[in-house]
Design a protein around this nucleic acid. Structure first.
Length: 661
DNA sequence: GCAAGGTC
């Protein structure tokens, strides 16, 4: 029998796949408890037939990329030389054990079968494994498995249908690695060396870093800061009609919302008053529903953590990783918001039946309440949505772990239940030449809301009976004024959304970039709503008082789905929990960097997110074969070298802004 | 003393 060496990207995949293929004997690799070789026999059928298998894994990338030794010291060269200084690829000390295991196993194998994640980084990790193995054993046949989840049938099918490694995807990643290193190091050294003497008053300041992700992240914060700072409130006017019927006071909102022209509103208002009678022109009752949430992705978990679990994104990820390592939840880094058809969701629900709090709800799902989860638009082809794997009783977890676990479970159960159902009533009246309307909601069946307290959808006050054609003299009609209010500073969920939408970082790294711009003192955070240290400095978010304040023209209790974050008008509890959200304010240094680069005036300001987007497109082009790694690297290096030269020439501009000019 | 991407 021939020997097949299988290598996954991480131990959990090796374990799961090996167990699907055959009962395996697990051997620790050189005393590491977390790295194992699974040894078993398996028949690969037409491809390789009956074989001895060793199924092992790496732990992410094995090799590091660095400048040649001569260029590593900051004084060794002019930072501009980093654009073409030689680069070396090597195995870091802490990865040597992993590399050696691959070598040892590859020596006696006929086939190297790669099981890294089926994404670009996975493809690149695959080539790292291949290079190490081929160096020891050049006669190896190299294949990879194509799989998008670790369900048994899917894995078995992948095992029997190996495909070639995709060199193009690996090359796209190699281009990214080289560009991030060269540009990051060159700009970081240049900036730091040029600016540090200027701002020495900040003693602990060490490095003024540049990175293709951290700078756009900072850019978002600064951008919002200026929108807040430069905001000029505008006065608007509107008409509100109130009518009391059957002892219920109903507010009718103006269909036009509000106008910025006082005279116009006055004229329209007087026409209403002259008309005296209002007439009901529409009464519509219709069934409505609030959709259950989508299956949970990493980005969504981080946003919800900031909103409801009182943890920043980095903390949420740390906790989620621990829950994953202990086997309570699935892999926490995923972009997928659709469950694969093959996955046995009921078996997951079943395990939650024993819980004292949400157990009864899970039982309800088992007893006929189950509904297939919605499918979101994302699928990373590597991991399922985050879901509970095993039941753990709350007392076994610490407080933070319990909050995250509970959220993951509730979210999952909500996904598997029915949308909330209600009845919406829309009433419109004409009054003068104007139309006013009100909206009512009766929640008929809460369904998923019973297990998912993070969403709010509540019945509005009962509306009295109105019928079309009915006329009345409104109890009250008044003209009000209000002022547009400034946006708030950027919150963490908003920042994550922006990064996600602009392709800044990945699900696994977004929290790190946010932490980095804090660590570099480019930004400060504080509790939104003027928390502890929210002292004297400007309460920018104008508060609405009395008759002032924007009313966006929405009826009460509307509760649109997918409610955007921030100022959620209707929900009392949601509002309270929002008190835990951090807001981001750039420091003088942070503002200076972004402003400085904007002022130096390239069309390609380093703070702008589209540079990273361009890079993403170029990587896709490499994958598609329409360009090559070499072309992308060289084109970008030339482009950024120009930026680099112009920045060093105009470094005084950057210095001036940093000094607060 | 620099980046971003994997993962333990």
């Amino acid at each position: 029998m021939g020997k097949i060496l299988c290598v996954a990207e991480k131990p959990s995949i090796a374990k799961a796949v090996a167990n699907h293929l055959a009962p395996a004997q697990a051997q620790d690799v050189r005393g590491l408890a977390w790295l194992k070789n699974y040894v078993f026999d398996y028949n690969f059928g037409r491809t390789w037939g009956a074989s001895n298998v060793v199924f092992t894994s790496v732990a992410g990338h094995i090799k590091s990329t660095e400048f040649d030794q001569r260029y590593r010291s900051w004084n060794s060269c002019n930072p501009s030389q980093l654009f073409d200084a030689p680069i070396v690829n090597y195995v870091e000390n802490d990865k040597k054990v992993i590399a050696r295991n691959i070598e040892e196993q590859a020596r006696s194998a006929q086939v190297l079968f790669i099981w890294t994640d089926c994404d670009r980084e996975g493809e690149h990790i695959g080539t790292e494994i291949r290079d190490i193995a081929l160096k020891i054993n050049p006669r190896l046949e190299v294949k990879r498995a194509k799989f998008s989840n670790i369900e048994r049938a899917h894995v078995i099918s992948a095992a029997k249908n190996p495909v070639p490694l995709d060199e193009k995807q690996a090359n796209a990643v190699a281009a990214r690695i080289e560009l991030d290193l060269r540009l990051g190091a060159a700009f970081t050294r240049m900036q730091t060396l040029a600016l540090k003497p200027m701002i020495d008053r900040v003693q602990e300041l060490k490095v003024i870093s540049y990175g293709s992700c951290q700078f756009p992240t900072l850019g978002f914060v600064v951008d919002r800061y200026f929108r807040v700072k430069n905001f000029v409130p505008e006065t608007f006017w509107y008409i509100k009609v109130t009518h009391k019927k059957e002892g219920i006071s109903v507010n009718f909102n103006w269909k036009r919302g509000h106008l910025f022209d006082r005279m116009a509103v006055t004229v329209l208002f007087e026409r209403c008053l002259m008309a005296k009678m209002a007439k009901v022109i529409k009464v519509q009752k219709k069934p409505t529903s609030k959709w259950k949430p989508l299956p949970l992705t990493t980005v969504e978990l981080q946003k919800m953590g900031s909103r409801f679990l009182r943890m920043d994104s980095q903390r949420v990820m740390k906790i989620a990783e621990e829950l994953y390592t202990k086997g309570w939840i699935s892999y926490p880094r995923t972009e997928t918001d659709q469950f694969d058809k093959g996955i046995d969701l009921k078996q997951i629900i079943e395990k939650q039946q024993q819980d004292g709090v949400w157990g009864p709800f899970a039982q309800g799902l088992m007893n006929g309440g189950f509904k297939q989860p919605r499918n979101g638009p994302h699928n990373d082809q590597a991991h399922p949505p985050i879901h509970p794997v095993n039941y753990v009783v709350g007392v076994q977890l610490n407080d933070e772990e319990r909050r995250v676990y509970e959220f993951v479970v509730r979210r999952f159960l909500a996904c598997c239940s029915e949308d909330a159902k209600g009845e919406a009533t829309d009433i419109e009246i004409s009054y003068g030449d104007e139309i006013f309307r009100t909206h009512g909601l009766i929640v008929l069946a809460r369904n998923y809301l019973d297990v998912y307290p993070y969403d709010k959808w509540e019945s509005s006050q009962q509306l009295p009976q109105f019928s079309v054609g009915e006329t009345f003299v409104p109890t009250e009609a008044k003209m009000f004024d209000g002022e547009t209010t400034a946006p708030g500073y950027l919150t963490e969920p908003e920042l994550i959304s922006l990064m996600d939408a602009n392709g800044i970082g990945t699900d696994a790294t977004m929290a790190e970039h946010i932490a980095k711009i804090k660590e570099r003192t480019y930004v400060m955070t504080r509790l939104k709503g003027g928390g502890r240290n929210g002292g004297g400095d400007g309460n920018i978010e104008a508060t609405s008082t009395g008759t002032r304040g924007a009313r966006g023209g929405r009826g009460r209790g509307r509760g649109g789905r997918g409610g955007r974050g921030g100022g959620n008008s209707g929900s009392r509890q949601g509002g309270n929990r929002n008190g835990g959200v951090q807001e981001f304010i750039p420091t003088t240094l942070g503002v200076a960097l972004i402003e400085g680069y904007d002022k130096v005036g390239f069309e390609t300001s380093l703070s702008k997110p589209f540079l990273r987007k361009e890079m993403e497109l170029q990587m896709k082009a490499i994958c598609a074969g329409t360009t090559t790694r070499n072309d992308v690297v060289h084109q970008n290096l030339e482009k950024y070298r120009e930026v680099f030269v112009r920045t060093t020439q105009q470094i005084n501009v950057l210095k001036a802004v940093s000094l607060g000019q």
